Computed example of a mutant assay.
Amino acid sequence: MTLTAFLLILVSSFLHALWNYRGKKFSPSPAAFMVTSFLVFSVASPILVWRHDILSVITPETWLLLALSSVCQGIYYTGLGIGYQKGDMSIMYPLSRAMPVLLVPPMVAMAGTGAALSNQAIVGMMLVVAGGLLLPLSSFQRDAIKRYQKHIVFWAFLAALGTAGYSVIDDHAMSLIRQELDIPGKPYWVAIIYIILQMGGTGLSLFLLVSCWPAQRRQVKGLLQDNTRLLFSLLFKNGLFIALTYILALSAMAFVDNVSYVVALRQASIPIGVLMGVFWLHESAPAPKCCGVVLLVLGLVMISF
Rank of each mutant, 00 (worst) to 15 (best):
Tyr76Asp: 03
Met92Trp: 04
Ile242Leu: 09
Gly124Ala: 07
Leu298Val: 15
Ala264His: 02
Met302Phe: 13
Gly112Glu: 08
Val43Asp: 01
Met125Phe: 07
Lys289Met: 12
Asp182Leu: 11
Ile177Trp: 09
Pro106Ser: 08
Phe154Gln: 05
Asn227Pro: 04
Leu68Glu: 05
Ser211Asp: 00
Pro187Gln: 07
Gly79Asn: 11
Val256Thr: 08
Met107Ala: 15
Ser96Ile: 11
Ala160Lys: 10
Gly222Thr: 05
Met34Arg: 00
Asp143Ser: 15
Tyr261Thr: 05
Val210Thr: 05
Tyr93Trp: 14
Tyr148Gln: 10
Cys72Asn: 05
Gly83Pro: 14
Leu240Tyr: 01
Asp171Pro: 02
Val71Ser: 04
Leu176Arg: 11
Met92Pro: 04
Tyr194Leu: 06
Val123Trp: 11
Leu223Asn: 00
Ala173Phe: 07
Val43His: 02
Ile270Cys: 01
Val220Phe: 00
Lys24Asn: 13
Gln219Thr: 04
Gly165Ile: 14
Gly23Arg: 09
Ala156Lys: 13
Ala130Asn: 04
Leu296Tyr: 02
Leu240Pro: 02
Asp226Lys: 02
Leu224Ser: 03
Val293Gly: 01
Met1Ile: 11
Gly124Met: 10
Phe255Thr: 06
Thr2His: 08
Gly162Ser: 12
Ser90Lys: 14
Ala32Cys: 05
Leu117Cys: 07
Thr245Ile: 07
Ala156Pro: 15
Ile75Ser: 04
Ile193Arg: 04
Val71Thr: 12
Lys237Cys: 04
Ser284Thr: 12
Pro271Tyr: 03
Ile122His: 02
Ile272Gly: 00
Leu206Asp: 00
Arg97Asp: 12
Leu8Val: 05
Asp53Glu: 14
Ile242Tyr: 06
Gln198Val: 15
Phe305Trp: 13
Leu250Glu: 05
Gln219Val: 00
Leu197His: 09
Ser37Met: 03
Leu206His: 01
Ala164Leu: 11
Lys289Phe: 05
Thr62Asn: 03
Asp257Cys: 00
Leu133Thr: 08
Gln120Trp: 09
Pro100Ser: 14
Tyr77Gln: 13
Asp226Phe: 00
Leu64Arg: 07
Val35His: 06
Arg97Lys: 15
Leu134Met: 13
Ile9Asp: 01
Leu102Arg: 13
Asn227Val: 03
Val49Asp: 07
Met302Tyr: 08
Ala160Trp: 09
Leu296Lys: 02
His52Phe: 12
Thr202Leu: 03
His52Tyr: 09
His282Lys: 14
Lys221Trp: 03
Met99Leu: 15
Gly114Leu: 07
Ser138Phe: 01
Ser211Asn: 01
Asp171Ile: 03
Asn119Pro: 03
Gln85Leu: 14
Ile195Thr: 13
Ile193Val: 15
Asp170His: 12
Gln219Trp: 00
Pro105Arg: 05
Pro288Cys: 09
Gly239Lys: 03
Tyr84Thr: 10
Ala121Leu: 03
Tyr246Gly: 05
Met107Glu: 09
Trp213Glu: 02
Ile122Glu: 05
Leu181Pro: 14
Leu15Cys: 10
Gly185Asn: 14
Asp143Tyr: 08
Arg51Val: 01
Val210Leu: 01
Pro136Phe: 04
Gly292Ser: 09
Ser233Trp: 08
Arg218His: 06
Ser167Val: 06
Pro60Lys: 02
